[in-house]
């Protein structure tokens, strides 16, 4: 299991999406998110995209006002996760059309469905954008 959690956080440090692939209770999650967000948001553009925190390695990438943070274990290829974040953003872009924070807030469940199609149990399932989006588009048509 490589990916432990996926977080989307805005510039103010508010969580906009959180998906954990291992169980943490509410209190643990809040502190973890707080610590990680503080650490990552303080870093500059030039610094590398990896932060070690507790036993996680956090790979993060910033898109406008939104930070995408992925917590992985030590075995995972950090560069690949960086690429994965980009793929996630491109997929969301294709669906929402230039995705922004509000899209994710107001369509939280859709963002989750997309993520669900891409990651399962901490592993990447699918990397083709059209494969990821087809079930979601199907639903949109039906409703």
């Amino acid at each position: 299991m490589g990916i432990r959690f996926v977080l989307m956080v805005n510039k103010q440090g508010q969580t906009r999406l959180a998906q954990y692939y291992e169980y943490l209770n509410l209190e643990e999650r809040r502190t973890l998110e707080g610590e990680i967000v503080r650490k990552c948001l303080a870093r500059t553009e030039q610094q590398c995209s990896f932060v070690e925190h507790r036993n996680y390695k956090v790979v993060y990438r910033r898109y406008a006002s939104l930070f995408f943070l992925v917590g992985v274990d030590n075995e995972e290829n950090e560069l690949a996760i960086l690429e994965f974040i980009h793929l996630l953003v491109e997929t969301m872009d294709r669906h929402f059309g230039n995705v922004c924070e509000l899209d994710i807030m107001f369509h939280l469940e859709k963002a989750h469905f997309m993520l669900e199609e891409m990651v399962m149990n901490g592993c990447i399932v699918e990397t083709s954008k059209s494969n990821i989006l087809s079930p979601i588009q199907l639903m949109d048509k039906a409703s």
Partner: peptide, 13 residues
């Protein structure tokens, strides 16, 4: 339930 998911994300029980 959709509301609850949002509330959950914000860190409430």
């Amino acid at each position: 339930l959709a509301k609850l998911m949002f509330i959950h994300m914000l860190g409430y029980p």
